[in-house]
Design a protein around this nucleic acid. Structure first.
Length: 795
DNA sequence: CGTTTTTATATTTTT
DNA sequence: TATAAAAACG
């Protein structure tokens, strides 16, 4: 099992039981190490499968972990504590719902539901949503929860903040009354449960001897504390991560957790996995050189045994349109040379960039798949159906109730609902409970709706889950509604798909592979039979609690699947796993996605597009120094996705928000040593006069291309693919003239208030012209040249 | 109540 | 530009 690993990987896998930090570089086999360690711990009898807890961020990586684990050891993964932070916390809260102060049928609000809930709250409390935009309130609440903070923990420096805290309090009360829990609440509740309830805490602390964490650099403050608390009984934490790939600070991830963990827990036990099995030398060295510009790294340098490979190909085009066409021409050539479409990825910093590329691909008739966008359980028709289902279990879920009370329309209007909301607030009850108190004209329809829900709930008691969904879709009127809609066909299909999903789900849930407590299907060779997870695992030490005891220990429902109704389980599943992003047809399609979405993936050929100042790094990130470093890590992630061939492209002008913007090439390109780059177009700004096409590095010879899909011939030494315009547009080289002043990129300027700065971008023309200016003291600003009084100075 | 018009807003995103 | 949400209208 471990003999195919390199020495560092082996060392990590076979580490004695103690806290350890594994710094795993891109493509260094991190998932492999993680899963092999789990298998090794089990096989060498150091742990029972029940003694392991493995946590990830996405369902996808949790699934992959299980898949790989079962390929190493033939065990039944059912009941294993391997999953996402949210999934595991949900499991824990379901098992101990009473101790956690929740109702048994509590439901999960996704981000959209949460926002709706906040909007409703603000409206009801008469809070000005101009001054307290729902989105900001949501960010505030989730930010606080991710820091582990309740309203009473937050300092109120000013009135605005005091008010936010007040809203947080009200929101929490509303959730409580509705019987719902939002995403960060799952974690915080679970944390507080463990913290406050000693028997439960000690139980889990005894149970989990080994805690394994994937993508550790993405953990937030609360997740970190949850892990530390859970390990308090002497368990060891095996944390795998890469600080250079930390790209989620904007949603609360704190890379600092890695350094803290190293200092406070892992001490000397830090293992670096630096051998990269993915990319050729030029690609890897480019990434290394780039990321070296970041300060405060834990330090790491990737290397490879594969050859240097080909240099990174760089192309600068006059416009985003031509950039897209150029990329498509290269893709055509790659495909012509035998490349697989699905092994080609086009990456971009922001989603808005995809349309031009999509258009070009479409025109060229190349099949492609765009990642990101609406997922199955987020579609409105599916959410409608789910809302009805949620009401079966919990009539007080106002968010769900409001979503469907008048959908399809049944004559319940805004003013009726307002009256009802007033009543509900007055008595501090849910909307559903307020219905009987309503008198007047709207009341009749409300009663009919209430009766409909009751009759569905009755049905829920006697039929299977798929049958219930079928029933709900029919009797709610959803089916009829979409049948009469002209664009409703696809939505009907999705509703049918929901029934199918439930059928599959119910089948999987009901598959009782083996009796609880007996997890291993076949004996594993060379392992004593008694550790194979028989009813009372023999290897558990006296302090541990055999899994069997769980059921008798007073903790309700230790085995989730057996205590949750199929409906509740399905609803949890729908909330926690929003499903795949729509899978466009075409088995072999070019992959389009943001750099963020590409993390963890790899491709033979990668195009990084829009590598321009202001876009990548994004201008919004330049406000703070930490922002630039995160952008650089993002670029690092992008580069290290490529196995054999990497392209970096940029456009001098780009349509953005309806107007053309001009930009310089990204600083990141200048941070990569030129020896790794091969400019396929002239490098504007340097070689403007002596523009040389193609190889100014004179390096056809360096393209050793030691094997792979693009061996045959080298179509790329052709200087152009036909669409390259040799001159930059006038406005770029000549700049913009406003009044008697002339501005160009790179020009130094002085502003009375902001001080000295340099123009880093220009857009528009004449009196509408705007300039992005990087000021020395106050950072970047966008100024209207017709308005701002700027002095032109030497740069 | 459902439709049309206006207006705001535009990194990155999983759970 | 283009999209979604809010406001105004019939």
């Amino acid at each position: 099992m471990i003999d195919r690993l390199n020495p560092e990987q082996q060392a990590a896998v076979t580490l004695p039981p103690q806290h350890a930090l594994v710094l795993a570089g891109a493509g260094s086999g991190k998932t492999r190490v993680l899963t092999t360690r789990m298998a090794w711990l089990i096989q060498t009898s150091q742990a029972s499968p029940f003694g392991l807890l493995a946590v990830t961020f996405t369902n996808k990586s949790a699934r992959e972990m299980l898949t790989r684990l079962t390929s190493l050891l033939p065990i039944n993964t059912r009941g294993l504590w391997v999953g996402t932070f949210h999934g595991l916390c949900n499991r824990m809260l379901r098992a101990h719902y009473r101790d956690a102060g929740l109702i048994q049928t509590f439901q999960i609000l996704d981000s959209a539901d949460q926002l709706a809930s906040i909007k409703r709250l603000l409206k009801g409390a008469g809070i000005d949503d101009e001054k307290y935009p729902p989105r900001d309130v949501q960010r505030f609440i989730n930010g606080a929860k991710e820091q582990g903070e309740r309203p009473s923990d937050i300092e109120a420096w000013d009135d605005h903040r005091r008010r936010l805290i007040e809203i947080y309090k009200l929101y929490q009360a509303q959730c409580e009354r509705d019987g719902v829990v939002d995403f960060p609440e799952l974690l915080l509740r679970s944390y507080e449960l463990l913290q406050r309830n000693a028997p439960i805490r000690e139980h889990y602390q005894r149970r989990f001897r080994h805690i394994l964490v994937d993508e550790f650099q993405d953990t937030n403050a609360l997740q970190y504390r949850w892990l530390i608390l859970l390990s308090g009984g002497g368990a060891s934490i095996f944390a795998v991560g890469d600080d250079d790939q930390s790209i989620y600070a904007f949603r609360g991830a704190d890379v600092g957790n890695m350094a803290d963990f190293q200092r406070d827990y892992a001490r000397g036990t830090v293992i670096r996995l630096e051998q990269n099995y993915r990319s050729y030398g030029h690609i890897l060295d480019s990434a290394n050189a780039l990321i070296a510009h970041n300060t405060s790294r834990l330090g790491k340098n990737l290397w490879t045994e594969q050859g240097a490979g080909e240099p990174v190909r760089v192309a600068e085009q006059p416009s985003d349109l031509l950039e897209a066409r150029w990329v498509i021409d290269e893709i055509k050539a790659l495909i012509h040379d035998g490349g697989l479409r699905s092994q080609i990825a086009v990456l971009y910093r922001s989603n808005a960039q995809s349309r031009v590329i999509e258009h070009a691909l479409f025109s060229a008739g190349i099949s492609y798949k765009v990642y990101g966008g609406l997922r199955f359980f987020e579609r409105q028709e599916v959410k409608h159906a789910l809302a009805y289902l949620r009401l079966m279990d919990n009539r007080n879920d106002d968010t769900s109730w409001l979503r469907v009370v008048n959908f399809p329309t049944r004559g319940i209007g805004a003013r009726t609902l307002e009256q009802l909301a007033d009543l509900a607030r007055e008595h501090n009850i849910s909307l559903c409970q307020a219905v009987p108190l309503m008198s007047g004209k709207g009341g009749g329809n409300l009663l009919k709706f209430a009766a409909l829900i009751e009759s569905m709930a009755h049905e829920a008691q006697v039929v299977s889950l798929p049958e219930l969904i079928e029933h709900v879709i029919h009797h709610s009127g959803l089916r009829n509604y979409y049948q009469n809609e002209k664009e409703g066909a696809e939505r009907l299909e999705n509703l049918q798909e929901l029934v199918n999903a439930a059928t599959v789900f119910a089948a999987e849930e009901n598959f009782e592979g083996l009796p609880a407590g007996r997890m291993i299907e076949q004996p594993v060779p060379a392992t004593p039979p008694e550790v194979l997870g028989t009813d009372e695992p023999a290897e558990l030490d006296a302090a541990d609690v055999p899994i069997r005891a769980l059921d008798d220990s007073g903790f309700a429902g230790a085995v989730l699947e057996q205590t949750m109704s199929p409906l509740a389980a399905f609803l949890s599943y729908a909330s926690l796993e929003a499903g795949d992003n729509q899978a466009q047809a075409g088995q072999d399609a070019v992959q389009l996605m943001t750099v963020h979405a590409a993390k963890g993936l790899e491709f033979d050929a990668v195009f990084i597009t829009g590598v321009e100042e202001g876009l990548f790094p994004h201008e919004n990130s330049l406000l703070e120094p930490a922002g630039l470093e995160e952008e650089r890590r993002l670029m690092y992630v992008a580069i290290t996705r490529a196995r054999e061939r990497l392209y970096i492209t940029l456009a001098q002008s780009r349509m953005l928000h309806g107007q053309t913007r001009y930009a310089m090439r990204s600083r990141f390109l200048d941070e990569i040593p030129q020896e790794h780059l091969k400019w396929l177009t002239p490098k504007a700004g340097l070689a403007r006069d002596a523009a040389t096409w193609g190889d100014d590095t004179g390096s056809g010879a360096r393209s050793s291309a030691g094997g792979g899909a693009y061996r045959r011939g080298d179509a790329y030494n052709r200087p152009s693919s036909g669409t390259i315009a040799p001159r930059a547009p006038r406005s770029l080289t000549s700049g913009v003239t406003v009044g008697d002043q002339h501005f160009r990129i790179g020009q130094g300027v002085h502003h009375q208030k902001f001080g000295d700065g340099t123009i880093i971008g220009l857009s528009g023309s004449g009196q509408d012209a705007q300039a992005q200016i990087q000021f020395r003291d106050v950072g970047p600003k966008t100024l209207a040249l017709g308005v701002a009084k700027l002095e032109v100075i030497a740069a």
